[in-house]
Structures are given as structure tokens and as C-alpha cells.
Design a protein around this nucleic acid. Structure first.
Length: 499
RNA sequence: GGUCCGGUGGCCGAGUGGCUAGGCAGAGCUCUGCAAAAGCUUCCACAGCGGUUCGAAUCCGCUCUGGACCUCCA
């Protein structure tokens, strides 16, 4: 069995083979910290966190690099050239780095909420200005960039004609044909500095009012958007590394440009496997700033957005995302999240029940259920090896839940499953749910609350014994209103779950 | 206009030739003082029209339709 991944470069599933045995280098495009993260941002970071975790579970030593873009991107909206961070800083009356710090902190907070593992290295663009300048100088020296009015542009035309001969034309990743694009690119004004519409900025001359600026051989300015990823991935992962990840919307132009820059400097396509997650949509439309339809993570966790009827736990979001294959769009709605919340609750309670199952008999039954369970369990690895199909693993888990609950509630014979099957279930569920999927329950380990509830449970029990159902039902119903659900177990005990 | 990807039951969503996906919601039953929880059973699909095939949600063609990228974007 071996891992197969869908490579955007070939548009096919390929068997994954790392460049260095036992090691994987993975670069994932991180956030631009000029604003608060929204639900759409959550998807890549959760997706690649699970990929990272799965690679670790396969025994790879992984260097996972995820950048923070804290040097404003050059933005072209019609004729205006604008730096996102600079302009936002002016609006919020903050020093640019103050703004960047604020949103970096918020981003890290969200990542913690999602239980994402921290990357091995989290480099910032502003911390690598020197590397970026060096790289730009190299590209100029090789003749693939030119200086104009203190800015530097990448010469896409020249790159394409030279590298096409080597089988590396510009547009390799996105399937774009540069000749065809000439006619289809939209008219942008103030583009006279560029020799060609397809050329992109490596370095941008900073106008006097621009507050984020660095000295460079070409005057004071700031780096173009694409160069930071090339510079930082090369620095920490080398000329060629295993996996480059990000959202599908980055394929063009961002990743295409990265490939061009890195190929000039390092003479290789930087990464072997390009993995891209699909978008989260809302009413069938991509959630994005430009569409003005984003739901911020803080609004989601707090239930403060008008489209939401309640707050949603970060784990619900995580589970919601994992229920879909990462390369499919995922349509968000309040209803879908509620469904995910209930599903996760059921799954997690099944998981907890499973861990409490005691192995008593030592028989090795040949029951159909036993072999079914083993089959479902065995497929976990197959599904993950098939381009990280978390959705199918979860479906199998849900098929196992009734067996687990049936055993717990004695609706199934105690020896329906063999002890070894139960142990495999316990181990595999733990590895998958906690280590690979990164899910966790909110364990209510509150002795005070537990004590209070035990008291109420005992009072209710006494009331029931006296057939005082008014009292017993009051306790049960009032607790439900407070989010505590009492469960009368088969053996006469009472347990509870807190929402 | 160019490039690409979709259209699956009330909702979300797996699935690339034959086998029940799964979750949520709905219905019935068991259990229960009544419920809840749990278990069991069950209803509701593959945009349309052709074609290939013994057999298609799955392959091919056409039509309709939604979306992404081409500009910052996860």
C-alpha cells in the first residue's frame, strides 16, 4: 500500500515518493495578516494540517513550512496600486507592524482553536527581505527581469520562450497558454512600466506616502507578492522539495509565478507535488473578500453572524471540513453546520463508549459483524492513501458506531467482536480521530459540575422511586434547557453529556 | 472571450462500469412511567436527451445549468 496524491501539475493521482527517503519537505502558503481570518481560510490550514499529521503517522520526518505574509501585497485595482497592509494600517491608525502583529496573533489563536499543529518553520516575508532581494538580483543577472522606474518586473515573455524549449513553459501548472492570453487579459491602465501585460512585479518602487519600505539596489520599495514564497521555500526546503500546497485560487498567478522565479534561480520546478484544496462556498459562490460574503472565524465561534442561529465549536468546523474531500467545493450553511455538529457528537460519544469497552471474553468469534468491523477498519489506511479521503474514513467510522453502541448497551452479544478486534478498534479510532484528524472532545473535567449533577441525578432517582414524576421530569427538562442531557442507561445508571 | 471544474435523494456530501456510501432531517418499531439516548427497520437520488455496453450516477456526444481562475484572493 502506498500513498497516492493528486498532483495539480499532472492533473493526475501519482504515487508519492519523497526526494529523500523518510523525509518530506512541505511548503504551504500561509495567511496575509492584514485582516481577520474567515471560514474560507480555515480550509487549507485544516486540510494541510491533516496531511501533515498523516505524513507523520506514516513515519516521515516532515519539515512543514508555512509563511506569514506581512509585507503588503501589491494590489492592482484598475489604476490604483495599493498595499493592503499599509492602507489598512492608516485606517486603523496603527504602525504597520502593529497591525501585522495583531492579526498574526489572531491567526495563531484560530489555529490553536482548530487544534492545528504549528508548522516546523513559520517564516515572515518582512524577515526575508534580504533573501528576496538576492533572488531578484539573480533573476536580473540571468536576464529574466528588468528594472523600470525603481521597480523590477519578471519578463514572462522571455522566460516562456526560453523555458518552453526545456519543457517548462510559463503556464505549466494552470494550463494557460501565454500566446492565447495576450488577447484575453483585461485592459489595465498604468501598465506602461511593464514590457508585457503578463509580466509581474518582483519589486515595487514605493511612493512617498507608502509606509512599508525597504532599501534595495533599485531604490526604496517593497517586494512583489510572489517572490517571498520562492525565497523562503528555497531557503528552508532547498531547490527542490516534495509538496507545495495552498488554495486552488492560488494556482494562477501566484504559484505559476513562483515556479517561474524558482526555476530561473534553481533550474528546477521547485516542488514535485502541488496539492490544492478547493473553496468553501456560500450559496454556491466562493467565500471571499471580493464577494463580500465572508464569515469571520470569531463570528463563527461566537455565533454573531446574521446567517448563524448559534455559535459553532471549532471542532465542528474541523469535522465539517473533513467530511468532504479536500478537492471538492464545500457549501456552507447554518443547516449544514448543525448537521455536522450533531454528527460529530454522535461519533465522539461512540468513540468514548468504545474506549470504555472492557474486553472480557477471550473467544475468537467468527461472526459476520466481527469480519465486517475488521474490513471497515482496514479500509481507513486505504482511503487515506488514496489522496487523503477523510470523508470515506469518517463514513466507515459511522458504520462502526452502531456496533460499538450496541455492545455498550447490550443490544449486541458481548462476544460479537473478538477481543483483538475491539483492541484494534480502540487503537485505530484513537490514532485516526485524535492524531490524524486532530479532533478532540471538550472533556468536561469539572469536579464541581460533576458533583452538582450527581446530586441532581440522585434526587431524580429518589423521586422516580417514589413515582414523583413531576420532580424527576422537572430536573431532566430544566437540565436540557441548560444544555445538559441526562441519559438513562440500560443498567440503571445515569450518565450525562454537556453541549 | 480563454482555461478548467461541477450538476447525486428535503439539506450537506462519498462514489468512475455491476455491490446499502455516510451524516443531518422524516417515518415506524424495541427499550422507557413518559421521554431522551441507544438499537433495529424504512421513505426520498444520480440535470436532460441520445450513444457505447450483457450492464452506466460512473465512459462518449449534444443540450441546459452552476461555479472557479484569467485582478487581491485560502
Amino acid at each position: 500500500m502506498s500513498l497516492r496524491v493528486h498532483n495539480s501539475l499532472s492533473r493526475k493521482k501519482e504515487t508519492f515518493k519523497s526526494i529523500t527517503d523518510g523525509h518530506v519537505g512541505m511548503y504551504v502558503c500561509g495567511p496575509t495578516v492584514s485582516g481577520e481570518s474567515h471560514l474560507g481560510h480555515a480550509r487549507p490550514f485544516i486540510t494541510f494540517d491533516v496531511i501533515y499529521r498523516y505524513l507523520l503517522s506514516l513515519g516521515y520526518k516532515v519539515r512543514y513550512v508555512r509563511n506569514i505574509t506581512d509585507a503588503g501585497h501589491f494590489e492592482e485595482e484598475g489604476r490604483e496600486a495599493e498595499d493592503k497592509i499599509s492602507s489598512k494600517a492608516v485606517i486603523e491608525k496603527l504602525e504597520p507592524m502593529e497591525l501585522v502583529q495583531k492579526y498574526t496573533n489572531l491567526f495563531h489563536w484560530a489555529m490553536t482553536q482548530f487544534n492545528n499543529l504549528p508548522p516546523s518553520i513559520e517564516p515572515t516575508a518582512t524577515g526575508h527581505i534580504v533573501e528576496q532581494i538576492n533572488m531578484i538580483e539573480e533573476i536580473i543577472k540571468d536576464g529574466y527581469a528588468y528594472v523600470a522606474n525603481g521597480s523590477v518586473y519578471f519578463d514572462v515573455e522571455k522566460y516562456n520562450s526560453d523555458f518552453s524549449k526545456k519543457g517548462q513553459p510559463y503556464g505549466l501548472l494552470s494550463g494557460r497558454n501565454i500566446e492565447e492570453q495576450q488577447d484575453t487579459t483585461r485592459e489595465l491602465e498604468n501598465q506602461d512600466e511593464k514590457r508585457n501585460k503578463n509580466d509581474f512585479a518582483l519589486w515595487k518602487n514605493a511612493p512617498p506616502e507608502h509606509i512599508m519600505r525597504w532599501k534595495s539596489p533599485w531604490g526604496e520599495g517593497f517586494p512583489g507578492w510572489h517572490i517571498e514564497c520562492s525565497a523562503m521555500s528555497t531557503k528552508y526546503l532547498g531547490d527542490e522539495f516534495d509538496i507545495h500546497g495552498g488554495g486552488m485560487d492560488l494556482i494562477f498567478p501566484h504559484h505559476e509565478c513562483e515556479i517561474a522565479q524558482s526555476t530561473v534561480c534553481n533550474h528546477k520546478t521547485p516542488a514535485r507535488y502541488w496539492l490544492h484544496n478547493n473553496m468553501i462556498t456560500i450559496n454556491g459562490r466562493k467565500m471571499g473578500k471580493s464577494y463580500n460574503n465572508v464569515i469571520k472565524l470569531s463570528e463563527l465561534f461566537g455565533g454573531t453572524h446574521p446567517l448563524l442561529t448559534q455559535a459553532f465549536h471549532p471542532m465542528t468546523i474541523r469535522f465539517f471540513i473533513l467530511q468532504t474531500h479536500y478537492r471538492s467545493t464545500l457549501d456552507f450553511s447554518n443547516e449544514a453546520l448543525i448537521a455536522a455538529e450533531k454528527g460529530l457528537k454522535r461519533l465522539w460519544e461512540g468513540y468514548e463508549n468504545l474506549q470504555k469497552l472492557r474486553v472480557t471474553s477471550n473467544q475468537q468469534p467468527e461472526t459476520e459483524t466481527d469480519s465486517k468491523a475488521l474490513k471497515l477498519l482496514g479500509e481507513f489506511d486505504e482511503f487515506m492513501d488514496d489522496d487523503f479521503n477523510t470523508a470515506k474514513v469518517l463514513a466507515n467510522m459511522f458504520e462502526l458506531v452502531p456496533i460499538i453502541n450496541g455492545l455498550k448497551n447490550k443490544q449486541l452479544e458481548a462476544d460479537t467482536l473478538s477481543p483483538s478486534t475491539i483492541q484494534s478498534l480502540q487503537q485505530k479510532f484513537k490514532i485516526y480521530l485524535e492524531d490524524i484528524f486532530g479532533l478532540r472532545g471538550d472533556s468536561v473535567d469539572n469536579e464541581q459540575l460533576n458533583g452538582v449533577l450527581q446530586l441532581l441525578i440522585n434526587i431524580r432517582k429518589e423521586a422516580k422511586a417514589k413515582k414523583d414524576f413531576v420532580t424527576s421530569d422537572t430536573i431532566r427538562n430544566e437540565l436540557i434547557k441548560l444544555g445538559v442531557q441526562l441519559k438513562d442507561e440500560k443498567d440503571g445508571t445515569v450518565s450525562y453529556s454537556v453541549n
